[in-house]
């Protein structure tokens, strides 16, 4: 990281430098306070959830409640099942995207074949198209063919989230890979497929890992697809968390916070492991760092 380098003309510990640090501090208080608050709230007992702010006796009970039948009885949200559904459908969606996307990204990164740009931009446009444009007809179709509220239906529609990401990120990695390496493998006597598996694939493995994890994060975080295309059995975690506040009856803020924390944690952990590749991923390969 270049963070330790001083900018030309910059000196440490001038009033300006201290001021800059103060400004940063203001942002990070704003940025991190809600997260801190979420943790605090998730550790409160039901008795203290609305009566105290910062001074309370912490407990981990909320997490076990949320993940058990007890939480389902209290809030009518089956959180554990949503968690499982999210893991399976998001994992499945990423897997499908990788299997389909890696060859396509390789083709688009290596050859300018007729229509390749059109295909790539059509795929990218899925990222920017309003989701409902697809969801409304799918809602009708799913109801007709029985894909409504199924994991398969979810895996299918999540391709809109995961596939553009996987293909665009990986294409930028394949483009950066010198062609000579695969050509050398061809002349060593390997077929194109073996050259790809032996040479190209191992070299873009970091890119594949980054793309897969980022796609998983976005699939995990998606809300509008499962909100409309799932019902009670295969709803995902975002839908479940939102439902804690949705229905009438008694509000369990502490349980809501615990659920939200559980739902937020996997993306946070994954994101920190791929921080180095994040910029390139978030910009679909447009900005390389």
């Amino acid at each position: 990281m270049a963070a330790a380098e001083l900018m030309p003309g910059q000196r440490r510990f001038t009033p300006a430098a201290v001021g800059a640090d103060l400004l940063l501090l203001v942002w990070f208080v704003f940025s991190l306070f809600p997260l801190l608050w979420l943790v605090l709230l998730s550790l409160k007992t039901s008795a203290e959830q609305t009566s105290t702010y910062f001074a309370f006796s912490p407990t981990l009970e909320n997490f076990s409640t949320v993940l058990s039948d007890q939480g389902t009885r209290l809030t009518s949200v089956n959180f554990l099942s949503a968690l499982v559904s999210s893991v399976l459908s998001c994992g499945g969606a990423v897997l499908v995207s990788l299997v389909i996307g890696i060859p396509a990204a390789y083709a688009a990164g290596r050859w300018r074949f007729r229509g390749s740009d059109d295909l790539m931009f059509t795929i990218l446009s899925f990222r920017f198209a309003p989701e409902l444009m697809v969801i409304v007809p799918l809602f009708v179709i799913y109801n007709q063919i029985g894909l409504f509220d199924t994991k398969l239906g979810l895996v299918w529609v999540l391709q809109l989230v995961t596939m553009p990401l996987v293909i665009w990120i990986l294409r930028s990695y394949f483009e950066d890979l010198p062609e000579d390496l695969e050509q050398a493998a061809l002349l060593d006597g390997y077929t194109r497929r073996r050259a790809f598996v032996m040479v190209a694939l191992p070299l873009v493995r970091p890119g594949i890992a980054a793309a897969a994890l980022l796609a998983f994060i976005f699939a995990w975080n998606s809300y509008i697809f499962p909100l409309i295309l799932t019902g009670g059995t295969n709803g995902t975690i975002t839908v479940a968390v939102a439902r804690y506040l949705g229905g009438g009856g008694q509000a369990y803020y502490n349980l809501t916070a615990a659920a939200a924390l559980i739902g937020a944690l996997p993306p946070l952990v994954l994101a920190l492991t791929i921080q180095r590749y994040l910029v390139r991923g978030l910009s679909f390969g447009a900005v390389k760092s």
């Binding site: 997260l35 975080n221 809300y223 975690i237 975002t238 939102a242 937020a264 993306p267 994954l270």
Partner: peptide, 9 residues
């Protein structure tokens, strides 16, 4: 961190 939390959450 805030960017990685689901907007719904």
């Amino acid at each position: 961190l805030p960017l990685m939390i689901a907007p719904a959450i």
